[in-house]
Design a protein around this nucleic acid. Structure first.
Lengths: 320, 320
DNA sequence: GGGCCGGATGTTATCGATGTCATGAGCGCT
DNA sequence: AGCGCTCATGACATCGATAACATCCGGCCC
């Protein structure tokens, strides 16, 4: 069932059918409706390949997701789905399809059928970004908040603000020494630390940085090591809820009470089960913003990065 | 940069380029390699629209995911991403792209550009399935284990086995009265209950069914209500880890110890943080099986449903 | 009446890859 | 030489929708 067939049935030419289905004012409204009804009745579906070939556009956006099992970082995984939900919502209502692929696959295959690429990789991986740039397509990258450059738009949550919120909260609670748990190799983590330190500037509250991989057990070990080393702290800012849980493990082992002796904050509000004070990122909104940026880029709009605001959720881990 | 352009550069015709890039034995190996190098050098990418139009195939599979915010069922959400990971792995290596969409969008849009549809909806929603069937495309449905019918292939985890494993485990531990937590309106839940009862057949262990929505608070309320009603039980089989956590809440409030007074089992091994005995489903494998079934269907293979095995993970919630 | 205009519809060419058939070169056999 | 055969390559038509251009018709004005 093609437009041609419909055209014969309706007694018009195929171009009229094409116009009618696209709501062109060039076709009489009455005829338009009649053709639409006919299409509906016969279950006609537009052949996307033909349209895409003719219009030279794919009417779809590819999201490249990081699935490398070596860089295990469970923290971000469930959240990716929320981002995808936001992407879908915005893209589909604008007539774009969302194609999912992995970076390895995108680079290997020589058919990349998209009007733009959204990169959902982990933050510090500039290499991934440069590889993807070779496609010469509009590119929007999630995960790092930094100015747009080289025609690439960045959308990331406001990590500085996240660190600042935690710092202000802990300072307001009267905490005097803070242990920062996270690996500053990751740009987001470094930004959170910067935000924390900015909030504490002039308050005479020292921060000890304990570098630590993204796993619960690593966090527990890191906390234990700091305690063994004699580091003093009455608050922990962990860079994910998993790390915060690990910190709780370590503190419990040492016989310290939370939040009595030590307050603990998490990040991402994912694994907390309602116990942790944590910085919440709105991943659904992030997906929508990513998609919106992409549509703007495709439409030839300006190149401008954007930050997603974050919010502090206060729970029992800092205020029993 | 089209095949035509490449052809001119290589001094051959475009059809030869086409054949060379597809590894056709009709082209001399030496020439083939030369053309491939040339294509690589110029960053040539196949125009998917043109190929799809000519071959009358989309070279892609659409996954329809349930995103309706009204049917909130957080349990399954993070897991969908794992299924998607499995789908990607299998589909992309076979030259298929994965297109994501929501059911509402799939039904609304009149361009569905796919060789087949994988439905990742929640179990009991037969309506969704019938709506999607109208596309007259190969259809694979996740979530319910039942025989293939009407040309639809089902892939689901073995819910009966899950219930049976829990039943045997609890019986072996010496538990005598079981509270089943879950809404049997959902087909999977009903199957788990059936498996549980089958395992207990002849052992004189009664099961009380407490219907309950898929949220932590609902589970807590349901447990509290059963306790208030005087229902006696020394074990709870919850149909998700969220429900199990809610059950823990309810038991704790009532001053009951776990697993001393009451053993608790979860399902899905997702939110447990390593504390719950739970039935683990391999969602990554599920995704791979879904994709494999789809590829078989597209290739004209037989229509046969399949069950994904499950596994019991024993943790401290049943064995202190 | 003739010319002009705008609105509605049709004709034709085109997007890029590929299936089908045609062509041509080279070889062996009679 | 001539025929048949294989192997490698090319010419042409085609997939379905749409942009660009062409046509047609009725009405209005001078």
């Amino acid at each position: 069932m093609t437009m041609q067939d419909l055209a014969h049935l309706a007694g018009v030419s195929s171009i009229t059918v094409s116009r009618a289905l696209r709501d062109s004012p060039l076709v009489r409204e009455e005829l338009r409706e009649q053709i639409k009804r006919l299409a509906d009745k016969h279950g006609y579906r537009l052949n996307a390949a033909a349209r895409n070939l003719r219009t030279m556009r794919a009417h779809s956006v590819t999201a490249v997701i990081e699935m490398d099992p070596t860089t295990e970082r469970p923290m971000s995984e469930p959240l990716v789905l929320m981002v995808i939900g936001g992407l879908l919502q915005t893209l589909t209502t604008q007539g774009y399809r969302l194609v999912l692929t992995t970076r390895a696959e995108a680079l290997r295959s020589n058919v990349l059928d998209a009007d733009g690429i959204i990169l959902l990789g982990q933050g510090p991986n500039d290499e991934a970004m440069h590889q993807i740039r070779r496609f010469n397509l509009p590119l929007v990258v999630w995960g790092i908040s930094r100015p747009a450059a080289d025609g690439v738009v960045f959308v990331g949550s406001d990590n500085q603000a996240g660190g600042r919120l935690v710092g202000e909260h802990l300072a307001d609670l009267g905490r005097r020494r803070i242990l920062f748990l996270g690996d500053t190799v990751h740009a987001e983590v470094a930004q959170r630390l910067a935000g924390l330190e900015a909030a504490l500037a002039g308050r005479d509250i020292p921060v000890t940085v304990a570098p630590c991989a993204f796993s619960r057990t690593a966090a527990r070990a890191a906390v234990a090591a700091e305690l063994a080393r004699g580091t003093r702290f009455d608050a922990v800012m962990a860079c994910s809820d998993f790390l915060a849980l690990g910190a709780l493990d370590g503190l419990e082992e040492a016989g310290l009470r939370v939040p009595g002796d030590v307050a603990v904050t998490g990040y991402d509000d994912a694994a907390a089960q309602g116990r942790l004070t944590s910085v919440r990122q709105d991943f659904d909104l992030a997906g929508q913003v990513l998609a919106r940026k992409m549509l703007d880029l495709i439409a030839g709009g300006p190149i401008a990065s954007e930050m997603i605001p974050v919010e502090l959720v206060v729970r029992s881990s800092t205020q029993g």
